[in-house]
C-alpha cells in the first residue's frame, strides 16, 4: 500500500512540476495545488498506513483499543489542508487581481515592479 501511495505522490509531483514550469501564473497555481496535495499524502504515508480502528477512546476506558490508526499524521494533514486552503484562496484572488490590473498572466510580461529599461542599464 505504501508503494502504491509513493508512486501516486511521485506522479502528482511530476504533474505539478510540469504545470509549474509554465509561464502562465494560473497554471503555476494549479501546479502548486497538486504539489501541496502530494505533500499532504506524503505526511499521511510517512505516518505508516494501518487498517486500524478510528483512534477513539470508548466511554469509561482510559486507553484506545489496540491496533488503532495513528491520529497524528491525520491531524497534521488536516492542519496543512486548512492552511493550504487559505493560502490558495488568497493566491487565486491575487492572480485574478493581477490579471485585471496588469492585463496579463504571463510572468515574462510582469515587469511593473522591475521595469525593463532599468535592468538593462
Amino acid at each position: 500500500m505504501e508503494t502504491l501511495l509513493s508512486l501516486t505522490i511521485g506522479l502528482l509531483v511530476a504533474a505539478a512540476v510540469y504545470l509549474m514550469l509554465a509561464r502562465n501564473v494560473l497554471k503555476f497555481l494549479f501546479g502548486m495545488i497538486l504539489l501541496s496535495n502530494a505533500a499532504n499524502l506524503l505526511i499521511f504515508t510517512a505516518g505508516r498506513l494501518t487498517f486500524g480502528e478510528p483512534p477513539l477512546i470508548a466511554a469509561g476506558e482510559k486507553l484506545p483499543p489496540p491496533g488503532v490508526a495513528n491520529a497524528l499524521p491525520q491531524a497534521l494533514v488536516l492542519t496543512a489542508i486548512v492552511i493550504g486552503f487559505g493560502l490558495f484562496a488568497f493566491a487565486l484572488v491575487l492572480v485574478f487581481r493581477a490579471y485585471t490590473t496588469l492585463g496579463t498572466l504571463n510572468t515574462d510580461d510582469m515587469r511593473v515592479a522591475e521595469p525593463q529599461e532599468e535592468a538593462d542599464r
Partner: peptide, 14 residues
C-alpha cells in the same frame, strides 16, 4: 468568519 471573508471577497471580485 474566515471562510465567508474569502468566499464573499472572491464572489465580489470575480
Amino acid at each position: 468568519g474566515a471562510i465567508l471573508t474569502l468566499v464573499f471577497a472572491m464572489e465580489e471580485e470575480i
